[in-house]
Design a protein around this nucleic acid. Structure first.
Lengths: 343, 343
DNA sequence: TTAGGTTTTGAATGCGCATTCATAAAATGC
DNA sequence: GCATTTTATGAATGCGCATTCAAAACCTAA
């Protein structure tokens, strides 16, 4: 059907050399005399030759593609990260085989099988967890793997997250400094390290000052659940004067619910703080005070880590936590004495 | 380094058959006696054998992966579409090699080369254009290709869009029926068919009623430009009482600028209508009246079209326009007599 | 029972490239 | 100028699977 593609052998014949020579010209780290190289290159150009990546992969065992499993794409943090990830990986000559996943273990397993069948050189899990048995397999098969924005206890797993615990604590200090007395938390999924750590840090921060949460609801990073949680909080006995929400995506829903369903003002009546600092946070409609999770750096570190694992440096296995600082905007009362470092 | 992988030949030896027999068991449309099939399958299971997709691709010339080039990921329409695309393609047994692109011809060319080197079976361009020379190449090389949410005149190109012209016209009729007198348009990129068609339809709709735009600014689907355009419009001599914005993504910026910078109310002072109906449109903060572009159907049709082209049915080449209806919400004055079909 | 026909199966080959190994060419030393 | 080391090249082989083709096994009918 399609016109037969030109192979290295065709170029070789035209250039009057052997096929391996052509292969060497287009390969990396292989040497050919200037003279032949020129002949080969012109012949290749005349024929419009391009090496077949697949054949190369089959021969070398290295595909220059990495598998990416991502979920929660409705949270703008992930499209943003995805875009950067693509950029950085492409710069390093890697391709991305992408899969969307709900967060079910069996589904992940299937996807990973699929990735392995396709000979990916490494895998990035963006905001998805991995089962123990799957970890066993991947480690045994020596497949480099990094968890992005999600940590797991297993010491064999590398991950890049922000300093979620610290971030949560910072928020607590900020809200306390603002004199809030009735603080609640609408948390991210407690089945995820990010959700747990942010919450734990937050609670710790309150506790250190002798305060306790007046309410804490797991809304699993979902807008609808966050809105529902907000309703429960504001229909309760004690209504909060501050809410820390597990990520920005949910925080927007919380803010809207507070405003439209309860007619309260932000931050006059209620302070809201989020986590992520997605670009939407600075939209005037939200102007959300939030913990800035630097997607750029997280992506860079993720790729760096993965690539060095691919290069065989398994000492790279580590759990990296990127600093996460508070981005003060207008959705939460600003304490008088708060150090105004940001801007 | 990694444990040597088990090949079909290993399974064959263990099952006491030949390698081709194993190949036939795992291939499609190939027959093997029940007896041998069982032996092979148990042997394969015992060894944990999985066929190497790459080798298969090399042998068959069909990779079961499609290349996806996408830009404007900051517009939530595309993450939404991407997610569905992934779902539908995976269901059909296809994988996605994804590339982000700014919209520059040369960059696209490079990406496409890359895709071809990787032997993709087909390509989807999501919201990116394609040059004539590239079209020539792809057509000559017989690479199936579908443009998603972007049309081009070239008769050799397939595309799936919504009925942008009609959509634009509908908005015009809606705003006219609402009695608006000073209507402006902040358009999508006029270098894209979507941007042009929506604008053309809108203008036509106005013209048919004897009205004209009081202002029309190309904001190239970008938030910042849309905000800037809004400022220009509202600082002008005649202040609009209605604005049709080329997509929701920009419309949000327009609404915010109108509210926060000019202190005007929507829809009392100004009506705003968008295009796409991304999920954010129904958030209370925006409650945006907009043209609903059914991502689900568009994705399904795109995949259907692409797959039948891959199956060799090039009669499938066509330009498909999906119906786009108005989703009436609260961001624009609702005419008394407007047929309330939606919900 | 045997000729003719229908399936099944295996040996051989190719997909396009990289790599080992042996040989030829060039460069170096004295 | 010759022996020795270094470098450049080509023939052969393998990556893992699918497919052609011919041989073998199985059926069917008379």
């Amino acid at each position: 059907m399609a016109k037969k593609s030109i192979r290295a052998a065709d170029v070789a014949k035209r250039a009057g050399v052997s096929q391996p020579t052509v292969s060497r010209v287009f390969g990396v780290g292989t040497k050919v005399s200037k003279k032949l190289e020129l002949k080969v290159k012109t012949a290749a150009a005349e024929l419009g030759y391009r090496p077949n990546t697949l054949a190369r992969t089959l021969a070398t065992g290295c595909s220059k593609t990495i598998g990416l499993i991502v979920s929660f794409l409705e949270n703008p943090f992930y499209p943003e990260a995805l875009e950067k990830l693509s950029l950085v990986l492409n710069e390093s000559g890697y391709h991305i085989l992408i899969f969307m996943a709900a967060n079910q273990a069996e589904e992940i397993d299937t996807i990973v099988e699929d990735l392995l069948d396709n000979q990916v050189d490494g895998i990035i899990f963006a905001s998805v967890g991995i089962s123990n048995t799957l970890t066993d397999r991947l480690v045994k098969e020596n497949i480099p793997l990094v968890l992005f924005n999600r940590g797991q206890d297993d010491p064999r797993l590398s991950s890049v997250t922000s300093a979620n615990f610290e971030g949560g604590r910072t928020v607590a200090q900020f809200l306390l400094a603002g004199g809030h007395q009735r603080i609640a938390h609408i948390s991210g999924w407690q089945g995820s390290s990010t959700g747990r750590d942010r919450q734990a840090g937050f609670i710790k921060g309150l506790k250190d000052a002798g305060q306790e949460l007046i309410g804490c609801i797991d809304s699993r990073f979902r807008r609808s659940l966050a809105a529902e949680a907000t309703r429960r909080l504001f229909l309760g006995e004690i209504i909060p004067d501050a809410i820390f929400v597990g990520n920005d995506h949910m925080a927007f829903a919380v803010m809207e619910t507070i405003r439209t369903e309860f007619g309260l003002r932000i931050p006059e009546d209620v302070s809201v703080v989020g986590y992520d600092d997605v670009s939407m946070s600075e939209w005037p409609s939200f102007n959300l005070t939030t913990i800035r999770q630097p997607a750029n750096r997280m992506v860079e570190e993720t790729v760096k880590m993965l690539l060095s694992m691919i290069d065989g440096d398994f000492l790279t296995v580590q759990k990296l936590e990127i600093d996460a600082s508070l981005q003060v905007r207008g959705s939460a009362r600003i304490p008088e004495e708060w150090p105004n470092e940001e801007f």
